[in-house]
Design a protein around this nucleic acid. Structure first.
Lengths: 196, 196
DNA sequence: GTCTATAGCGAGATAGAC
DNA sequence: GTCTATCTCGCTATAGAC
């Protein structure tokens, strides 16, 4: 593996990530990706065996699989929730594109959903268990676990990454640390966390 | 206008709404829509003048434009936020498809984004102003308006409408009223609402 | 490894018959 | 209004030259 700029395979993956995030999988053609990457169309077949497989490779390469695998499953609920908020926020700050792709695939019932499940679901399971155990321990106060969990995920994933929100937001993104802090405050409030 | 079942134009729109929600605009072909609607492909051109225009018509017909226009702009912030949560939740409960379409178009920078803006943005402006004024009045407590607002929107829009979440939710949807109540509780908590 | 050329298909749109 | 037939285009994928 060479440096990203010299490695054509990596250049294709980076272009694909960018364009899938902006236009969706179906809205992006292999030709368009290769043009952006300065690569020949035939290389997608050569390196990945087609558009679908290239999509899967994005998660193999860019999703923080090691990080998730290394998380201590027995962490205290409050610490766990805070960790998840922080890690997801930092990850999005460094690589907003992958999160946008994940959102798109979740919202549609795409043919790629199985790939998304494979990589992303472990994180959701962890987060959900922390949200649940936090209530069991009397730390959080909410009625429906499903609704609480989905609201947390919504608040975490949905951000002003698209042009759409430009007309209605005015602060700029701020630092990732600040964002994580603000989100932690919102989500813990939403979960009815006992005052710290 | 006849009853939906007999009105071919309406049958096409209903099929389009369903399929766009499940597969995205680019992932759905006009042929597929017409097959689902039991209509001839040529009718999309005849009635709407093409696929893009048909998309716009969806919002003309199904988006609650009158409801939004009728909202009292000078409502108190707390009441306004509660109203928005309730109306959006009830709307999604009755017609989850349109919300899914809106999410998809927002997340990608699609060519349809201008249409989405035109119909949906007025609601966001109202909601954002209520969130802002609530803080001005000392009712809400958060640091960043942008982050608070986006978190509210995320919690409102992002729900288990897709297959993806089946493996990790177990309560079933419940009534719309219950859902609205739970969401209100989460969001007001997130906004740091003074205890009622 | 990288290219050109092309196969093969399915897309959106519409002319024109009924 | 609704249909069939067809146009034209762009898509993914790949065979085969280099």
């Amino acid at each position: 593996m060479q440096t990203p700029d010299n490695d054509i395979k990596m250049r294709i993956l980076l272009a694909a990530k960018k364009l899938f995030a902006e236009q969706g999988f179906d809205g992006t053609s292999v030709r368009q990706i290769c043009e952006a990457a300065g690569a020949n169309v035939a290389l997608v077949s050569y390196y990945f065996g087609g558009k679908e497989n290239m999509f899967g490779e994005l998660f193999q390469v860019f999703f923080p699989n090691d990080l998730i695998a290394s998380i201590d499953q027995n962490m205290e609920p409050l610490e766990g929730v805070k960790l998840a908020i922080r890690e997801i926020t930092l990850f999005r700050h460094n690589d907003p594109e992958l999160i946008r792709i994940i959102q798109q695939e979740i919202i549609t019932n795409s043919a790629r959903i199985q790939k998304i499940r494979e990589y992303v679901m472990p994180m959701w399971f962890l987060l959900r268990r922390w949200v649940e155990e936090g209530r069991n321990q009397g730390l959080f106060h909410y009625r429906s676990l499903d609704t609480a969990f989905m609201s947390v995920v919504g608040a975490l994933l949905f951000h002003r990454q698209s042009e759409y929100w430009r007309a209605i937001t005015d602060e700029g993104e701020g630092t990732a640390e600040q964002l994580a802090e603000d989100l932690t405050s919102f989500i813990l409030g939403g979960l009815g966390a006992s005052e710290a």
